[in-house]
């Protein structure tokens, strides 16, 4: 599979605060990635740096095979983006805004736009300033999908949507993801949304992608391990990101289960329990 985005040593700071620190990341074509991170972790900064909306201080980003600083028109036409905040032109009606945005692209799927407008019951005669936050967000999503891009980046797209709207939006992403050529990145706080559509999860923590793997692998590998032993002080859990002792029990969250170690402990008479965790718990543990 070809690489859609290649990020190398990307750094960005605001005043004295370092947000991204020599971040490396490689995204393959067809990946549907949920980007998780705490508030202020730098998800939007990373997305903006990838798209060169807010350029990074150092490092390089290759988008669809081109340097993100000098993208050709053909490559730009293959990118769709939904910002976190709706800053579209407030005085235009939805209809006018669609017409405005259409002018920038050679290819524009009018029927797709009409279908989404009707499905999401958007009054196209209303000005953007008259729409609710959720409706405005839906318009942004429509605008990002209308030119049928190959790479779609959504910055917390579902944050302002009601549950029905979120479900509908996720359904749309699932449909898009069915096309193996499409690459989708969406940042979110809502882990259940991510579990519904993403095939990969990336966790941004302390300026770096601290964890990036297939969603299934993440759930399979990042687990809670408990060891019951008479000599808990002598137990060290491999790959543990944090451990704590409770009487005769040693608990820890691991990023990978060392089966050999488990077998050895069990053969020595220790009891080793492995408990799967929800994605939300995994996220909290990895970013604790």
């Amino acid at each position: 599979m070809t690489t859609t985005i290649q990020i190398s040593k990307l750094s960005k700071s605001y005043k004295k605060q370092q947000v991204l620190t020599e971040l490396d990341w490689s995204i393959k074509q067809g990946d549907v990635i949920g980007l998780l991170g705490k508030n202020g972790a730098g998800k939007s900064t990373l997305i903006n740096a990838i798209l060169n909306i807010n350029p990074a201080d150092s490092g390089s980003v290759s988008l669809l095979g081109e340097d993100n600083k000098v993208l050709t028109s053909a490559t730009k036409a293959r990118i769709g983006y939904v910002p976190q905040q709706n800053d579209e032109i407030t005085w235009l009606t939805v209809k006018e805004l669609i017409q405005f945005k259409k002018q920038f692209y050679a290819h524009w799927n009018d029927s797709k736009v009409a279908e989404l407008i009707s499905r999401w019951e958007i009054d196209t005669n209303k000005k953007m300033s008259e729409l609710s936050v959720g409706q405005g967000q839906r318009v942004l999503i429509i605008l990002a999908l209308a030119h049928e891009p190959d790479l779609m980046i959504f910055d917390e797209p579902a944050a302002a949507l009601d549950p029905a709207g979120r479900r509908d939006f996720l359904k749309e992403i699932v449909n898009l993801a069915a096309d193996e050529n499409k690459t989708i990145i969406f940042s979110t706080h809502i882990t259940t949304d991510l579990e519904r559509v993403a095939n990969k999860v990336a966790i941004l923590h302390q300026g770096k992608i601290c964890h990036f793997d297939d969603l299934d692998n993440v759930k399979e590998n990042v687990v809670k391990v408990s060891v019951i032993s008479d000599q808990p002080n002598k137990i060290t859990i491999p790959y543990a990101i944090n451990t704590f002792q409770d009487n005769h029990q040693v608990n820890g969250v691991v990023t990978q289960v060392d089966l050999q170690w488990k077998k050895e402990l069990e053969s020595q008479g220790h009891q080793v329990d492995i408990t799967p965790m929800s994605l939300e718990d995994i996220f909290l543990e990895l970013t604790a």
Binding site: L51, N52, N54, L71, K76, Q103, F104, Y105, A106
Partner: peptide, 8 residues
């Protein structure tokens, strides 16, 4: 900044 990235 986003607009300048448009293919036009």
């Amino acid at each position: 900044a986003r607009l300048r990235l448009m293919p036009l």
